[in-house]
Design a protein around this nucleic acid. Structure first.
Length: 369
DNA sequence: AAGACGTGGCA
DNA sequence: TTGCCAAGTCT
């Protein structure tokens, strides 16, 4: 090597997809929805996993994926399932419109596509719950066809690789084009998954392990010494806070009063304990007007705290017991304690239930409503 | 086009 | 406790 070359500024070689594939072959994660090298995975399993993984961590998805696949081994089985069973099985995973769309999508696949997943992105995009990312992921991973798969991981890897300083929304097309140029045409599925593994294991949001990165020599952000400033994101304002109250009513025959939330919106279609609306200016003294049944309510000590993406919620819990022959008010129903586990109870309502169970024992009497 | 839409883990 | 983050989609 000539001295002039040694002294020259770091020469960034164009990133090579083979480097990523070699890294992936050595370090890829063993995930339940991944097929062995060279084996085409079941498009149904790929689609199911991709929908579950939308904004959701791998660890959270694993047990749900296993249960869904065991219970509904193919699209036809899922399409034939009652929606409420799917919602129940999804309970706890979050973003519940995904479960509704999953079921609707399965129905469309069976009705309009002879039970087989389309292999074209454009066709997949027309299906409920399948957006640009999921359509590309299914085409690349399940059908091993070359297409640019861009998720949050890929955005991070690519904005660092090219030191793209525009905030992500504006940079999206630039990122897609960069992936288009970079991706492997020979192993599109492995390339897509390799980029995501790289993003989650090496090119992490904080303290990326650049020393382990197959793209390190080509990476502009690494060269600049500031990988973690990419991607640039618009800062969000402070999270707002709301409050409300819920009523846990026990009947003498060990039933609990519940209702189903409207299909759309927050926790859409999920089971809940009746309560007040949730409001920033909630006043506890107005809670009684929302009690589902006339009864002797006791306020349980403490509160249930829950954080949604766009607001934090504080819930007061009221508890009461009523006679064994009381009918459920319209829009409500009685469910046995045992059957409660088979309800589509979101995490928030499981917290309420746990609070009611412990609170009822710890402090039988407090303020009355 | 910006905001709604869950949850749990971690600094 | 608060904020950020995780394989996005829909409106």
């Amino acid at each position: 090597m000539r001295p002039s070359q040694a002294l020259a500024p770091p020469q960034s070689a164009a990133p090579d997809p083979q480097l990523l594939l070699a890294w992936y072959d050595r370090h890829k994660r063993d995930l339940p929805w991944r097929a062995p090298r060279g084996v085409r995975p079941d498009p149904y399993a790929v689609w199911l996993s991709e929908v579950m993984l939308q904004q959701t961590t791998v660890e959270a998805v694993k047990p749900y994926f296993g249960r869904f696949l065991a219970r509904w081994p193919d699209v036809a089985a899922l399409a034939a399932a009652p929606l409420h069973e799917v919602m129940q099985a999804w309970a706890g995973l979050g973003y519940y419109s995904r479960a509704r769309n999953l079921h609707a999508c399965a129905g469309r696949i069976v009705e309009h596509h002879a039970g087989r997943f389309p292999d074209s992105e454009a066709m997949l995009r027309t299906l409920p719950g399948i957006g640009p990312y999921t359509a590309a992921a299914v085409v690349a991973i399940a059908f091993d066809r070359p297409t640019a798969v861009v998720d949050g991981n890929v955005e991070r890897v690519v904005t660092r690789l090219h030191a793209i300083a525009q905030p992500v929304p504006q940079a999206r097309e630039l990122i897609r084009e960069a992936v288009e140029r970079l991706m492997s045409r020979e192993r599109p599925g492995d390339f897509a998954q390799g980029m995501m593994d790289l993003g989650s294991m090496v090119c992490t949001p904080q303290r990326p392990a650049c020393i382990l990165c197959p793209f390190a020599t080509a990476c502009r952000a690494h060269a600049a010494g500031t990988p973690e400033v990419f991607p640039r994101k618009a800062s969000k304002g402070p999270r707002s806070r709301r409050a409300g109250a819920v009523f846990v009513v026990h009947r003498a025959d060990r039933c609990v009063l519940v209702r189903t939330r409207p299909a759309k919106g927050l926790l859409g279609g999920m089971t809940e304990f009746p309560g007040t609306p949730w409001a920033a200016d909630f006043d506890l003294r107005t809670a009684s007007a929302f009690a589902p049944i006339i009864a002797d309510y006791r306020r349980l000590p403490g509160e249930v705290e829950h954080v949604f993406t766009h607001f934090a919620l504080t819930l007061a819990v009221f508890s009461a017991s009523v006679r064994g022959d009381l009918a459920a008010p319209s829009g409500h129903r009685w469910v046995t304690e045992a059957d409660l586990d088979r309800e589509a109870l979101p995490s928030l309502m499981r917290k309420v239930l746990a609070h009611a169970r412990t609170g009822a024992r710890a402090a039988p009497d407090q303020a009355c409503l």
